[in-house]
Computed example of a mutant assay.
Amino acid sequence: MSVDLSNLRRVVATSAAVVTALQTATAVAGIRRGRRDYADAAWGPGLAAIAVTGAVVGTGDPARRWALAAVTTAWATRLERLMLQRLAGSDEEDERYTEFLEGDAVPAVAAKVFLTQGLAQLVVSAPLQLAAASALPRTRRRWLFPVGVAVMVAGAVVEATADRQKARYTARDREERPDVLDTGLWGWSRHPNYFGDSVVWDGAWLAAAASAPAAWTLPAPVAMSYFLVHATGARRTEEKMQERESYRDYQDRVSFFVPLPPGR
């Protein structure tokens, strides 16, 4: 077997400890200040911390360990900058959290937000953890590693490009900008930033799957895609925007998630 099980246990345990520390610190700060939405700022750093932990503690192929850590950290750094700008730009808690947690006591908030997010980080990063404790095979399967890293980079570029396009649209004068952003990547997908994010984690799985046992971590990128579409991302946006006639027309013309040529 290409996996060092003893080292894998160490990687998993250390990753869990790091995530627990980060989520605990974020929970304390967020709950004290009445900003449970601080959890958003812990998502990227938590995943980057797990990747770096694997690179440091793992004994698997060093090139793969550090490549995955580098790409994940770069992805998380850009995302974190966006999250901090958004949080700093408002004195009010994100209404999603206010509605979701209405009437909940501190223990319930800690469990529903911070504990849940910590567990999600450990699940999504399972390919990274397994890769950190695995050797690369000598067969052609080893080429899944560079291919997977390339897919991660491509996904990160799509996500960053979509976010830049959205930022430029939002910065335009309200009276001059169109009702709906439907140019650039947003003319091919209604949620290209979330799509790019999902591709990042598809690539991470692919790079890890160069070692056969890591292929069994396929539920990890599937879970990330579910989170992005249903739990916190695209579907919620659709529900909020559907009241606008211009957005309903946009829905008829443009693919929901996977970028495709516009309908007309």
Results as ranks from 00 to 15, higher is better:
189 S>M: 13
98 T>P: 07
73 T>V: 08
203 G>M: 11
100 F>S: 10
198 S>G: 14
118 G>C: 00
79 L>Q: 03
47 L>F: 08
160 A>I: 01
88 A>S: 13
264 R>F: 03
67 A>F: 03
258 V>H: 00
168 R>G: 07
232 T>W: 11
140 R>E: 06
247 Y>R: 13
6 S>N: 06
54 G>N: 03
206 L>I: 08
15 S>N: 10
107 P>Q: 08
112 K>E: 13
178 P>G: 07
180 V>G: 08
20 T>M: 08
232 T>A: 12
71 V>W: 09
153 V>Q: 10
236 R>F: 09
47 L>E: 12
82 L>I: 01
254 V>L: 06
77 T>W: 14
40 D>M: 05
152 M>Y: 06
249 D>K: 07
87 L>S: 03
33 R>H: 04
207 A>M: 11
252 D>W: 00
204 A>S: 07
27 A>E: 09
27 A>H: 06
234 A>S: 15
121 Q>W: 00
152 M>W: 11
130 L>Y: 05
113 V>Q: 04
129 Q>R: 07
256 F>K: 04
31 I>A: 03
143 W>G: 06
169 Y>R: 04
149 V>H: 10
28 V>R: 13
51 A>Q: 05
249 D>I: 11
42 A>T: 09
231 A>E: 07
5 L>W: 15
67 A>G: 15
86 R>M: 06
188 W>K: 00
156 A>K: 08
190 R>Q: 06
3 V>P: 07
26 T>A: 04
220 A>S: 14
155 G>T: 08
83 M>G: 01
111 A>R: 15
125 S>E: 11
215 A>C: 05
257 F>G: 00
19 V>F: 03
232 T>N: 11
1 M>L: 12
88 A>L: 13
32 R>E: 14
116 T>N: 03
162 A>S: 12
57 V>Y: 02
172 R>T: 09
240 K>D: 12
251 Q>L: 11
166 K>F: 12
75 W>M: 02
24 T>A: 15
170 T>M: 11
211 S>M: 00
96 R>C: 10
181 L>C: 08
150 A>L: 15
154 A>R: 09
200 V>L: 12
169 Y>N: 07
104 D>P: 01
40 D>R: 03
250 Y>P: 04
111 A>N: 06
164 R>W: 04
124 V>S: 02
38 Y>S: 02
210 A>K: 03
39 A>R: 07
107 P>W: 06
184 G>S: 04
42 A>G: 06
177 R>I: 08
6 S>K: 07
77 T>D: 00
182 D>E: 15
162 A>C: 10
42 A>R: 07
4 D>F: 01
55 A>I: 03
15 S>T: 07
114 F>P: 08
182 D>S: 13
40 D>Y: 04
161 T>G: 01
55 A>T: 04
118 G>W: 02
